[in-house]
């Protein structure tokens, strides 16, 4: 198995079909599983995984490994497809290359997260309390409103939101500290 970043670059540079087949086998079953978790049927999730990987093939030249890991980039493509499907309307500004494009002017209080990969976040997730991790996991994995999450955990809606806010603040702070220490 090749490193996914290298596979995408091979697709971008040489339209490498063997690289695409490897990338497809690595990611399509995960995307299918993830989208079933978000409430799609097996057939819908399979179609979305197919479409997401097709977009990876077509947009491979936009991929910049210094900005995002392969998994983060592929996730953002699948997320956009999912939202477009949910909203059933096409808008101009939904492509991941917008969000992952270089920032034009760098304000001193902002840090690019780009180079951080999904594994780093996985490690940072472990620094959250189990309660915080639970609401984050439910928010990303399941197709539940915050009200549904509150019901599922038998806690007030306000508690769900405050836990989520705290967890996201902690992840962001840890993220930015790492980005800073890397760039120094």
């Amino acid at each position: 198995m090749g490193v996914p970043e290298a596979l995408i670059l091979r697709i971008a540079e040489g339209r490498d079909r063997a690289a695409y087949a490897q990338l497809f086998s690595q990611y399509a079953p995960k995307l299918k599983a993830f989208m079933m978790g978000r409430g799609l049927t097996a057939i819908e999730a399979e179609d979305l995984a197919q479409d997401a990987l097709l977009n990876v093939w077509r947009k491979a030249s936009y991929f910049d490994p210094s900005k995002a890991s392969a998994t983060t980039w592929i996730y953002s493509i699948a997320r956009n497809l999912h939202i477009d499907g949910v909203r059933k309307q096409k808008r101009a500004q939904t492509l991941p290359e917008d969000l992952w494009a270089p920032e034009p002017e760098q304000a001193p209080d902002t840090h690019l997260i780009g180079v951080q990969d999904a594994k780093t976040i996985g490690v940072l997730m472990q620094t959250l309390s189990p309660e915080q991790r639970e609401v984050v996991r439910l928010s990303f994995f399941e197709d539940l409103s915050h009200g549904d999450i509150a019901q599922a955990l038998s806690i007030p809606l306000g508690t769900v939101k405050s836990r989520l806010r705290l967890a996201l603040l902690r992840l962001r702070a840890a993220f930015e500290t790492r980005a800073e220490s890397k760039s120094v």
């Binding site: 995960k30 299918k32 599983a33 993830f34 097996a42 995002a68 953002s76 969000l99 780009g114 996201l168």
Partner: peptide, 23 residues
């Protein structure tokens, strides 16, 4: 915008962990 990138990275970390479903 940085928060949105953070969310993509969190989502990606969950995508890595998910138990695959056969295509």
């Amino acid at each position: 915008r940085t928060s949105l990138r953070l969310f993509d990275a969190i989502g990606a970390s969950m995508l890595e962990e998910v138990v695959p479903v056969d295509m």
